[in-house]
């Protein structure tokens, strides 16, 4: 093999990759937070309201889930500003997209979670005189979260990996940092050899961390 590995330029620009990694985590974190709010609200609309509300939720969920994320990113970044005359940064645009995307997935997760709350627990809440709203806050939501916690961790790790797509609209996350180094140093293989373990190790570390939190929460609870 004639190719000679040369990591010198990678280390020289390594702070770009580190900053990119931090931004990737931030993007995933903000998006899942907004996604949880969207998912929770729509899962409740779906479970507690009539068929009209249901079909609205279904349109959103299926609409998002059956379009490639890359295309959604383009649509929100190029399409929406043109259609609505709004202007926002690439980063904001990506957060909007990823939040809508994670929201659509989490609706399904939370919905099945709510369905899995034993009716007996809700009856036990009724029996002590809790109002429907109190039953939601003190019983249904906490027990639902216990059920879906593992799926929630998985969703977060998926989102973390999906942030690499933000590179196509020049959000300076980890993959974009790698591309920048490519274009400026032509050390293409080296940079991917470096960022692949960065994704892998970070993703795995998050997984272990979240599993630990799950265990502690489920034990206490």
């Amino acid at each position: 093999m004639d190719y000679h590995f040369n990591f010198r330029y990678i280390w020289k620009h390594f702070d770009r990759l580190l900053d990119g990694l931090v931004l990737s985590l931030e993007l995933a974190f903000i998006s899942i937070l907004i996604g949880i709010v969207i998912g929770l609200a729509l899962a409740l609309v779906h479970t507690d309201f009539g068929w009209k509300a249901r079909s609205f939720v279904a349109v959103y969920v299926e609409g998002i889930r059956n379009v490639p994320l890359l295309l959604l990113v383009y649509l929100v970044f190029y399409g929406l500003p043109q259609a609505g005359g709004m202007e926002y940064s690439a980063q904001t645009s990506f957060i909007i997209t990823l939040s809508l995307y994670s929201g659509a997935y989490l609706v399904e997760v939370f919905r099945s979670g709510f369905d899995a709350v034993p009716t007996g627990l809700i009856d036990a809440g009724k029996a002590i005189g809790l109002t429907p709203w109190q039953r939601l806050i003190y019983i249904r939501i906490p027990t639902m979260f216990r059920i879906v916690l593992p799926s929630l961790s998985n969703a977060f790790i998926s989102l973390f990996k999906d942030t690499s797509i933000a590179s196509v609209i020049a959000v300076p996350e980890l993959t974009y940092g790698a591309q920048w180094i490519n274009f400026n140093t032509f050390r293409i293989i080296e940079v991917y050899v470096v960022i692949t373990p960065m994704y892998l190790v970070t993703g795995y570390a998050i997984l272990i961390g979240l599993r630990q939190i799950e265990n502690r929460y489920l034990k206490r609870s």
Partner: peptide, 29 residues
């Protein structure tokens, strides 16, 4: 709900709130 609060019920399968401790199960109501 207000009327139900005057009628207590104990269930075959207990149905304690799993995320609350024994005492929190009692204090909730």
């Amino acid at each position: 709900s207000a009327i139900r609060a005057q009628v207590g019920m104990v269930f075959q399968l207990f149905y304690l709130y799993p995320h609350l401790s024994a005492i929190e199960n009692v204090t909730l109501g």
